[in-house]
Nucleic acid binder design. Structure first.
Lengths: 344, 344
DNA sequence: TGCATTTGTGTAAGCGCTTACAGCAGGCCA
DNA sequence: TGGCCTGCTGTAAGCGCTTACACAAATGCA
């Protein structure tokens, strides 16, 4: 069997600008100008070109355009996982705005991946800039990306040179949440999460509630932010001596695990133990009791990230920005009984 | 201010193969061969090249490679939305396998978008093949994509020429579900969903339960597959005369809405009315009562899609395949009381 | 009418890479 | 020693597009 000729392998070409030019009886430069609206083109010429384009059903090759233009017109996004609605919502907000700005979105999930660095570098070669969650990418690599000229926006991490950061407010809401719980008369608390890991948001939440509750709260490491880990840690915690009256969870999924744990042990929530989450994912509202939590503007975070990235890429702005978006305490029934219980 | 020179605009270049070649004292062809392992290269020469690559921190430009190779090494995916875990899970399964196969994933959400066709075409210009959910993309455009040589895999739609399809089993599970419900002694049923829309899976589910229950079940259109729509439709249904004893919902989110509706009306589930969902999303397990539902192998669907696409792109296979993956009935408590209730 | 613009178009040089082809040693065998 | 491989490398022609530059024609203005 004969090997494929070069031409045959090329599925990308379809009809090229040369064919359009020939058909319209002009040069490829004119076709390009007519199509992009750069430089002057006589009305009659443009007409011919457009007609040829129409007849041949021509679409400029993205690769050719990108190579010549020196830009990809694409954004990347690096997230650990899409489990749970948090990243998903941010992603949607991001994609929507990126698309409006004429940029595609290339995704990369790092969960369970070896050689993340290579994957990130590959991604960097496909995009003009990227959004990175927290500390998903190691700092040295971040520095290298900056050096390479890849524009970066981070969500949920501490500011760093050469990149934008974006996060939602944590300390204030943590404080409000703690106050609400003490308002219920509770005195012993536990924080379920992993305040010492890299997910900076969680660290801030922990610091926030601790600042408000002082020695009345202890942290319990869940290792991961999943229902299962929340469940296991909560079972251990609720079985042990000195059971806390309220469990503040690092996020909703851990809280859902805690809810299951209480049920497993025959404990009433919030009668025996109160539970709160963070993020306000869909399941939080449907859990019984419904979960008191803190709502993050997840979609908004994504949308802002896309705009910020666009500013950096187009060069409209070159000084890094560090933005913090407000959050909102959502009181439901898992934290205690309220006089007039509002349906959320 | 002087306009940027061409060179300055080009942020993509960084260090090129020419610089590596010069430094190593060889031609760019040799550098390419040494790096890709195509063609013979003397050990000593390869050494020099690798060292130069190392010193200059060279990474081949994706654009250059793609243009020359005639392929993008990227897959697309088109989904209506990421709301709810269904699409997310499929996406993750897809991305993971695509990444293993050395392909990036470019996403496109069509929810609320005008000019979807243009977006899809743009996407088509960036990838070697794409995964499309259901009827997200109109058939004429699909035909055009096939003609352009874009490899296609569909999830959850009827087979069509020139593309793979992949779906999970619906009719059988619908039947099993219906039998389980009649086993509870119920006689009047309602199907909550929108069996006449384009989401083919749902149509099959409806046909499946109707085949099993005959005239004992009526369909109620929810318009959208959301908690809100499920809630509204269920309220109307449960308030009206001839309230059904069991509500079979097209998916879990609609079912969650039905659960909320029952609660709103002071009805006990499953005492007064039974509710079932479909998909087994996370919230299904955490709802109270926990939702009886049908589990789809969502990640598996995504993974299979990625592999199928790879086969089509690499040309390993050129006859379309139409695969159906098995589903699993998950009995929890929302459908009725069971003797020995197992915790799921 | 003469000259300076302006307008419209083509030519060609890239963008960074892959690879067909040619060429040049050196080794081997008769 | 001549011929023939074989192994290695370079040259150059693309891939499809954008755009600087050159140039001719049309226009404006005095």
């Amino acid at each position: 069997m004969k090997a494929l000729t070069r031409r045959e392998r090329h599925r990308l070409m379809d009809v090229t600008i040369y064919e359009v030019a020939k058909r319209a009886g002009v040069s490829i430069a004119t076709v390009s100008r007519a199509l992009r609206g750069t430089g002057p083109v006589a009305a009659r010429t443009r007409e011919k070109v457009l007609q040829a384009v129409e007849e041949l059903n021509f679409t400029p090759s993205r690769l050719g355009v990108s190579l010549a233009e020196g830009r990809h017109a694409a954004n990347g996004i690096v997230f650990p996982d899409l489990a749970g609605p948090y990243y998903t919502e941010v992603l949607l907000g991001y994609e929507e705005v990126a698309s409006e700005l004429g940029r595609s979105v290339v995704i990369l999930s790092t969960k369970g991946r070896t050689r993340v660095n290579d994957l990130v570098k590959d991604l960097a070669g496909r995009v003009d800039g990227m959004l990175i969650f927290g500390h998903t990418v190691p700092d040295p690599l971040v520095a290298e990306l900056v050096r390479l000229g890849v524009r970066l926006v981070f969500i949920s991490r501490d500011p760093l040179p050469g990149a934008d950061t974006l996060r939602s407010e944590n300390a204030g809401s943590a404080h409000a949440l703690a106050r609400h719980l003490t308002g219920h008369g509770y005195e012993r608390f536990a924080f379920l999460g992993a305040p010492l890991t890299s997910r900076d948001d969680v660290d801030e939440r922990w610091q926030g509630v601790r600042a408000a509750l002082g020695g009345a709260i202890d942290a319990v490491d869940t290792r991961h932010y999943t229902v299962e880990c929340g469940f296991e840690a909560a079972v251990k915690l609720l079985k042990g001596r000195g059971r806390p009256r309220a469990i503040v969870c690092s996020d909703d999924e851990v809280a859902l695990g805690a809810l299951l744990a209480a049920e497993e042990l025959g404990l009433d929530v919030p009668g025996d133990v109160a539970v709160t989450g963070w993020d306000d994912i869909m399941a939080a509202r449907h859990a019984r009791p419904a979960l008191t939590t803190v709502r993050q503007p997840m979609r908004e975070l994504g949308a802002r990230a896309a705009r910020a990235l666009d500013e950096l890429i187009t060069g409209v702005r070159d000084t890094p920005s560090n933005l913090i978006l407000p959050t909102e305490l959502v009181i439901r029934s898992s934290c205690g009984h309220h006089p007039q219980e509002a349906r959320t």
